[in-house]
Simulated scan of single mutants.
Amino acid sequence: MDDKTISRTRPDVCVIGLRGFPDISGGVETHCEQILARLSRTSPLRFVVLGRRGYMDRTHIVNERLDVRPVAALRNKYLEALPNALAALFYAWAVLRPRALHIHAIGPALVTPLAKLLGMRVIVTHHGCDYERAKWNWAGRLTLRMGEWAALRFADRVIAVSPSLARDLRRRFRRRAGRIRYVPNGADAHAETAPAEQVLQRFGLAPGGFVLGVGRLVPEKRFDDLIDAFENSGAQGKLVIAGAADHGDAYARALTGRASERVVFTGSLDRRTLEALYRNASLFVLPSSHEGLPIAALEAIGAGAPVVLSGIAANRDIGLDAHHYFKCGDVEALARALAAPGALYAVDRDAVLARFDWDVIAAQTLEVYQSMLDRSGMLAAVERINAPA
């Protein structure tokens, strides 16, 4: 649809800090798409998401209460978050006039003080300590820590996506502890899937004949460890790594240079194709050194895949038994896990999904919005949805 069909109604919530959706890979993007699609169907609130031009080129209208609009954006490995957050903030303030602004991630959260100066109510979702990512130098890490401080100091509400992160924030920002809420990432128990036979044939795979890793091709995902472990394990079948780099760099080129008959890089895939791979993998592995709360692992569990994860705090927050975890960076331990039967790492899918259900998570997010919007704002939303056509 084109811009002429966009609703001109003042949104209740404007969401910024993400690339956009649908079919744009990333944990923040999946988080927003899953929650907002549900809330736009089940709540009276109206949402506008401001994505980044270059990742999306036209407005996507999900339904009458949710649209995703591209805003002019800078696409750069190091300088993307802040200028794009500023552009989205000023568009929201000058054009949309939302009742609340929801900022995702601590890089974009640098604009929180400015949003407050402009008179906006602000929610920030903290998706993880991005200053721990390998790509950042001291200046980048300092900037991200400033974004975290700005979020915790000035936002009206802060959502943390993992319990360990929520505990850490409450410890470090004790005076703001009452404004911090744990609302996790989730998995979809009824995810749609592409035809398995077509997907497997496309990549030369057999059902149950491959180990799967999913994520962006960045150092903190540690896919180089996964390849080393696979090559040393004596495991049969293939290793499939699904994902791409946002910005071509030496690391991604070196990683994809290790492709072979048994090591397959698929590039970025849509969610239905990924679901088919999850359902047919002998084992899903996430060897990361940094995560928020890993959606890829939750999706793999939701699809019924056996799972092995690095033992970082965010992965342990999923709450699997100890044998599902290995010490991050321990290639020998990972190789032993790959050599073992995949059935050893089967997960109680229903028990995990009961704790990470997108429907429940959307309801928890709605509670945060309701606590932010004054009574008149909520009444306006209800009256709007009940108004005759």
Results as ranks from 00 to 15, higher is better:
Asp3Lys: 09
Lys4Glu: 14
Thr9Arg: 15
Leu18Val: 10
Phe21Asn: 13
Gly26Pro: 09
Val28Asn: 15
Val28Ser: 12
Thr30Val: 15
Thr30Asn: 10
His31Ile: 01
Glu33Arg: 06
Arg38Tyr: 06
Ser43Ala: 15
Pro44Tyr: 01
Val49Leu: 02
Leu50Arg: 06
Asp57Ile: 01
Ile61Ser: 13
Asn63Ser: 06
Glu64Ile: 03
Glu64His: 01
Pro70Trp: 03
Pro70Met: 00
Ala72Asn: 06
Asn76Lys: 05
Lys77Met: 14
Ala81Tyr: 15
Ala81Thr: 11
Pro83Cys: 11
Ala85Asp: 00
Leu86Ile: 15
Ala88Val: 05
Ala92Gln: 07
Ala94Gly: 12
Val95Asn: 00
Ala100Pro: 08
Ala105Gln: 12
Gly107Thr: 11
Ala109Met: 03
Leu114Val: 08
Leu117Ala: 14
Met120Glu: 14
Val122Phe: 04
Thr125Ala: 04
Thr125Leu: 04
Gly128Met: 10
Glu132Trp: 02
Glu132Ala: 13
Arg133Ile: 10
Trp136His: 02
Asn137Tyr: 07
Ala139Trp: 15
Leu142Gly: 13
Leu144Tyr: 15
Leu144His: 15
Asp156Pro: 04
Ala160His: 01
Val161Gln: 05
Arg170Leu: 10
Arg171Gln: 07
Arg175Asn: 05
Gly186Arg: 06
Gly186Ile: 02
Asp188Lys: 10
Ala191Leu: 11
Ala194Val: 02
Pro195Leu: 03
Ala196Gly: 11
Glu197His: 10
Leu200Asp: 01
Leu200Arg: 08
Arg202Gly: 09
Arg202Tyr: 07
Leu205Pro: 09
Val211Cys: 00
Gly213Ile: 09
Leu217Trp: 02
Val218Arg: 09
Val218Ala: 05
Pro219Ala: 00
Lys221Ser: 10
Lys221Ala: 03
Arg222Val: 08
Leu226Phe: 12
Ile227Lys: 07
Asp228Ile: 08
Leu239Trp: 05
Ala242Met: 00
Ala245Ile: 01
Ala252Val: 12
Gly257Phe: 03
Arg258Asn: 09
Val264Gln: 00
Tyr278Trp: 09
Tyr278Ser: 04
Asn280His: 09
Ala281Glu: 08
Ala281Arg: 14
Leu283Met: 06
Val285Phe: 05
Pro287Met: 04
Ser288Val: 07
Ala297Lys: 01
Ala303Pro: 14
Ala305Thr: 08
Leu309Thr: 03
Ser310Leu: 04
Ser310Ala: 04
Ala313His: 09
Arg316Ser: 07
Arg316Ile: 02
Asp317Gly: 00
Gly319Glu: 12
Leu320Asp: 09
Ala322Phe: 02
Lys327Asp: 11
Cys328Ile: 06
Ala340Tyr: 13
Ala340Asp: 14
Pro341Asn: 00
Ala346Phe: 06
Arg355Cys: 12
Trp358Lys: 08
Asp359Glu: 13
Ala362Ser: 14
Ala362Asp: 12
Thr365Leu: 10
Met372Ala: 04
Leu373Phe: 05
Val382His: 13
Arg384Pro: 13
